[in-house]
Design a protein around this nucleic acid. Structure first.
Lengths: 257, 257
DNA sequence: GGCGGCTCATTGTTCGGACAACCTGACATC
DNA sequence: GATGTCAGGTTGTCCGAACAATGAGCCGCC
């Protein structure tokens, strides 16, 4: 079982890592079971503990194993995780147009969650601050979107901020209240643009529109902002790219095992 | 400059890493410059090289520095990269319904890129194989989508496969020709459903629909499949979640510096 | 039975040392 | 000027060793 002296230009720990990952894939060490202890691996491969730790560190990065002090090294997966991810440098990239557009607020009001146009989480009788308006690009007179932004009452103060129309609301809330956006949920669908909204957007009634609903979730797991945008079909489309990504991709927050 | 004996329960290398990252953020070591050599850092902090390497390994994982054998350790960023990512366990998750739906192909033909309904890359005169049909969910008689799938002529053979209607086409191509999907570009927009498509989808002419256009790019950087789906507004919406992610996020392939 | 403390196995951290691999720049050579 | 060679410096790899931190299980006490 000790490593052969031949055949190897690569570092020792890489060879060890490959042997281990092969063994894992072949079921020698089933998912959920424990890898031999570091001391035992040292003996088996005839290398130092440093080398074993460097090898298992590679497996760790690939998400194949997890190490637990006082317990041991557990096999988590048989094969490398493969995931497609959409990367955004920052949240504003969601709207690729956010920098070149301006917002015009038409109405500010308080509304009960149950009576809002957008689905708001929590108690239906809870009141949210809502900012309603239009979004324009450049000097165009035709708006690119009709928008509603719902803000939790506790953060409603930001709707009075001077730079309210120049900076994204979620960003104002983050700065003013020291919270951080943990995730954004989006729901995109098609709708018919009718009634007052149609005339505001300069389209004929019943025209198709793209509806984008977003929920901003803070690190405290609180939905602190919900936004709804309706775009005329010919003035906006949503593009994204998903890239293949290998390695460690925790599927959830729960610990495996 | 050596570390104080007091105040520290954390591992040494973490303290060192924090001191270094602070120095980087404050501009003591500007982006693009070289960190002191490991030997020098050992002296300055009064720790062993192992500790220094463990510390810089942390900075490495955060994307703050890069190490180059024979050269040194270079500062790459002043602050931690922050990114929002959408994770998909596997490509089929794009359609969360893919497993519960079935495809019915109405037409198979060859068409020049320039005359296709979907924008196809490359020479407009190049001919693609196109699979046109409907997608149903369960036993419903109303289709959930009208779809077109364009396949490069070289891979057109898969459109004759027995399990053509049960497995995603891109997956067939991957398996049969041994290629791998590197990325998927998506464009989502709203459209009006008219003409023949409206009657096939059982909606009245002019109804709003959600259009999803996808380009599948292989690891050889070749667009090998393009798909177009039109969904009636009330029968489908696209949901996704973007999660905050810290650490190393190479924006491009190019090497920094 | 349940609780607390003890022991023991295992990984985490840190030291000191040695040589290999690699890059850069200076120098010699053609 | 272009090319090859060499020396020096820097990170990469590997060894041996020791102690700390942690978690699981055992055991006794209440």
């Amino acid at each position: 079982m000790p490593l052969s002296v031949f055949e190897d230009k690569r570092p020792l720990y890489q060879t060890v890592a490959e042997r281990l990952s092969t063994a894992i894939e072949e079921g020698t060490y089933p998912v959920g079971s424990m890898l031999p202890t570091e001391a035992e691996l040292c003996e088996r491969f005839g290398v130092s503990r440093q080398t074993i730790r460097e090898a298992t560190r590679l497996l760790l990065q690939l998400g194949l194993v997890s190490r637990h002090q006082g317990v041991g090294t557990r096999v988590e997966r048989a094969t490398v995780a493969e995931t497609y991810v959409q990367r955004l440098g920052a949240l504003p990239d969601i709207w690729q147009y956010v920098k070149e557009t301006r917002r015009k607020v038409l109405r500010v009001a308080d509304v009960a969650a149950g009576r809002a146009r957008a689905p708001l989480p929590g108690d239906p009788s809870r009141r949210w601050r809502v900012l309603e308006g239009l979004r324009f690009v450049g000097d165009e007179t035709k708006p690119i979107a009709w928008t509603q932004i719902y803000v939790l009452p506790g953060y409603a103060a930001v709707t009075d901020a001077k730079n309210r129309d120049a900076v994204p609301i979620y960003s104002l809330i983050e700065r003013r209240f020291g919270i951080k956006t943990q995730s954004v949920r989006q729901e995109i669908s098609a709708v018919a643009i009718t009634g007052e909204m149609a005339s505001l957007l300069h389209v004929t009634g019943g025209s198709p529109g793209l509806s984008v609903l977003r929920q901003y979730v803070s690190t405290q797991d609180e939905v602190f902002e919900v936004s709804l945008s309706i775009h005329p079909a010919d003035r906006y489309h949503y593009t994204m790219q998903l890239d293949l990504s290998l390695g460690r991709h925790p599927v959830g927050v729960a610990e495996p095992g």
